[in-house]
């Protein structure tokens, strides 16, 4: 009787721990080998056959296709430089320069990876469209209300993330610091 009780108890705990850990790992996005520069994080290894099992399971679950490392690299930001989650009801200033790349795009998604509907049908900028300052740097205002210059509308959603994709870039697994790969800063401004 005692043995039976013990077995059932152990199996129940094992199932709860095992499945719970898998669920948390896959929904929280805890892949290994992330390269974090400022507010931005990329997983360059996910673009190679050396992709780790967690990233692989995540890719299978979400239906996403990672950017191949021969194509480019994608940096994700879901919080600003101060670590506060990006809030679509606030103005956020993305400012600076990007690492060397032939082209880049910056796109706004909700947390599920869908584009966000807005009145001007703008979901992102390409390096060709963006208006730069005299020194080559740029400012993008991400916010709910129209702004002069580069305005990326949030559609007023509560949470979102920004994805900066660099195409045909030498930035890869070796880049670790902001000096090799200068990423734009993300700072929060006024809220609605």
């Amino acid at each position: 009787m005692r043995l039976l009780f013990g077995t059932v108890f152990a199996l129940a705990i094992a199932a709860a721990i095992g499945l719970g850990a898998t669920w948390i790992a896959l929904t929280r996005g805890t892949a290994y080998g992330g390269v974090t520069i400022g507010a931005w994080t990329a997983w360059p290894k996910s673009g190679t056959p050396g992709i780790d099992p967690y990233a692989r399971a995540m890719v299978a679950r979400t239906g996403d296709l990672p950017v191949g490392s021969g194509d480019g690299v994608a940096f994700y930001a879901r919080a600003d430089d101060a670590g506060l989650p990006l809030d679509g009801r606030c103005d956020v200033l993305v400012s600076g320069i990007t690492p060397q790349a032939r082209f880049w795009t910056m796109t706004l998604y909700n947390l599920e990876g869908r584009l966000v509907a807005n009145s001007v049908q703008r979901q992102g900028f390409t390096s060709q469209e963006i208006i730069r300052k005299a020194d080559g740097s740029f400012d993008v205002t991400v916010g709910p209300r129209a702004r002069p210059g580069n305005w990326l509308p949030t559609g007023g959603v509560e949470k979102y993330l920004l994805v900066l994709r660099l195409y045909d870039t030498p930035i890869g697994m070796a880049a670790r610091t902001g000096r090799e790969a200068p990423m734009p800063s993300i700072s929060k401004r006024a809220c609605l």
Binding site: A10, A14, G18
Partner: peptide, 10 residues
């Protein structure tokens, strides 16, 4: 034992 098994399940 349960913890170990949980790790394997994970």
């Amino acid at each position: 034992g349960a913890l170990l098994l949980g790790g394997i399940v994970h």
